[in-house]
């Protein structure tokens, strides 16, 4: 009984490490220079469309609402201290430092990450990856690499758009609806937000989230059991694992950057 438990623990530990090894090998193979750079540019543009443009709507809408909610909640708290002037500071700092990078990464994992896993899993199941191999084309270069770079480029841009739209949403509610002075909103924000401290750190966060989410999504698809059941499992585990990874990594990064 106990022996069994330990055995299972050991086995799942080993398979986790082996999975990590395969994920690392996949990323290494994909990022190794292939010597056909310019042929890959159209693929990158295509993937920027799939990964970036198609995630834009959910990011803009969520950003707008989150900014509006932040402003509404913040106002009711701040007004108790007569400090509703600081609304701009509260909205912008929470968006730039935390909510922008984290929420957009979570949405990205759900929208683009799961789609990537399903797409690559399906390519594996329909033998498209094998068929590339047999055509003497490395699927890591052809399929994985452009998607990886598209993820890394898209998510920081999406997070910036999220924060910018969120601040506009906060302004909408705070200034146009609740009547906070517009000048105070912007000037308190400007005096408290630092380019280096807040915006660059937020950007670094979202680049790291992009690596984590895209890597997990691509690996899950590439490593999926090529059946319909395997693909649906892989898709679910992409969303679950990348969400957990985002929150865990966020804690570490926040501790390092702002702690």
């Amino acid at each position: 009984m106990l022996i069994n438990t330990i055995q299972n623990l050991g086995r799942s530990g080993l398979s986790t490490i082996a999975g990590l090894g395969r994920a690392g090998a996949m990323l290494f193979g994909a990022l190794k220079p292939s010597g056909r750079g310019f042929k890959l540019l159209p693929l990158l543009i295509k993937q920027l469309y799939v990964v970036g443009v198609q995630s834009l709507i959910i990011i803009v809408v969520s950003g707008l609402f989150i900014g509006m909610v932040l402003s509404l909640q913040g106002y009711t708290i701040l007004v108790g201290y007569g400090a509703e002037q600081s609304l701009g500071q509260m909205v912008s700092l929470s968006l730039l430092r935390e909510l922008g990078p984290v929420v957009s990464a979570l949405l990205f994992a759900g929208r683009a990450g799961s789609a990537l896993t399903a797409e690559i899993g399906l390519m594996k199941a329909t033998e498209q990856l094998s068929s590339l191999e047999m055509m003497a084309i490395d699927p890591l270069h052809q399929i994985v690499a452009p998607r990886f770079w598209a993820g890394i480029i898209s998510l920081p841009l999406l997070a910036s758009i999220f924060s910018a739209v969120g601040i506009i949403g906060g302004h909408l509610v705070g200034v146009d609806w609740l009547g906070v002075d517009s000048g105070a909103f912007w000037s308190v924000m400007q005096s408290s937000v630092e380019w280096q401290e807040d915006i660059v750190n937020g950007g670094i966060k979202s680049i790291i989230f992009a690596i984590v989410v895209t890597w997990i999504a691509l690996h899950k698809g590439y490593d999926a059991v090529p059946t319909s059941e395997g693909i649906s499992k892989a898709t679910t585990s992409t969303v679950v694992q990348s969400s957990l990874a985002i929150l865990g990594v966020d804690f570490v990064l926040t501790a390092v950057m702002f702690g």
Binding site: L48, I161, G203
Partner: peptide
Amino acid sequence: IELLVGAFLFAGIAAILMLGLKVADSQL
């Protein structure tokens, strides 16, 4: 697709600029 991707990249950079100039008021 190329147009939409271009617009997306442009929007992203515009957002970063807005955050940098309007929100942080830093002299970029």
